[in-house]
Amino acid sequence: MAETPFWETKTLAEMTPREWESICDGCAKCCLHKFIDDESEERSVYEVDGSEVIHDGEQVHFTNIVCELLNTKTCSCTDYANRTTLVPECVQLTKDNLEQIYYMPPSCSYRRLQEGRGLPSWHPLLNGNKKSAMHKAGMSVRGKTVSEADVYLDDFQQYIALWPLEDVD
């Protein structure tokens, strides 16, 4: 009889560091630039002064602009260990801040588990630790982005994307 997977028996808070890291599906949607529109001004999510909530009248907009450290073919950070030093606005998702990071997309595996929705069928843990099913399902940023180094960020409105909000399965 097969053993029940750890993500079905443990809460996110109970997971070991290795288990926690493996929950990341590697879609790289967290590497997309996001902006908040509060009808009076538009600002980067990173300019929210540590806000842990989205206020009435505010809306998060995802763009197809990615961090310049992202390898868009593998959907992996080129310097994962140093990312928060090299990119100070890069948010490291942890057990302690998961609930405050309101701008994680609906397909985020951490968010799905926290909401009791389980892992999607395309998740690497369910596919031999390979990302191919995720890419095939269109759930990663692969082939959909432009590097922040190639755009003028003040023109972010031209790059607003709806696909990061899609959630398959």
Rank of each mutant, 00 (worst) to 15 (best):
I36W: 11
D37F: 13
E42A: 04
D49Q: 15
G50Q: 09
E52C: 13
H55G: 14
G57V: 12
E58F: 07
V60P: 07
V60M: 07
N64R: 15
I65L: 06
I65E: 00
V66D: 00
L70V: 11
L70W: 13
T72S: 04
C75E: 02
T78L: 14
D79N: 03
Y80H: 15
A81Q: 14
A81G: 10
N82D: 15
R83M: 14
T85N: 10
T85R: 07
L86P: 00
E89C: 09
Q92V: 07
T94H: 04
D96F: 02
N97G: 12
N97T: 12
Q100I: 06
Q100F: 12
Y102V: 10
Y102I: 09
M104I: 10
P105R: 07
S109F: 03
S109L: 02
L113H: 01
Q114A: 04
E115V: 03
G116D: 05
G116M: 05
G118H: 01
L119H: 07
L119V: 05
S121C: 08
N127E: 14
G128E: 15
K130R: 00
K131H: 06
K136E: 10
A137N: 01
A137I: 00
M139T: 00
T145Y: 05
V146N: 03
V146S: 08
E148T: 03
A149Q: 04
A149I: 03
D150G: 06
L153N: 08
L153R: 14
F156N: 07
Q157P: 05
Y159A: 06
Y159E: 03
Y159P: 02
Y159T: 05
I160K: 07
A161L: 09
L162R: 01
L162P: 01
W163D: 01
P164C: 00
P164N: 01
L165G: 14
E166W: 00
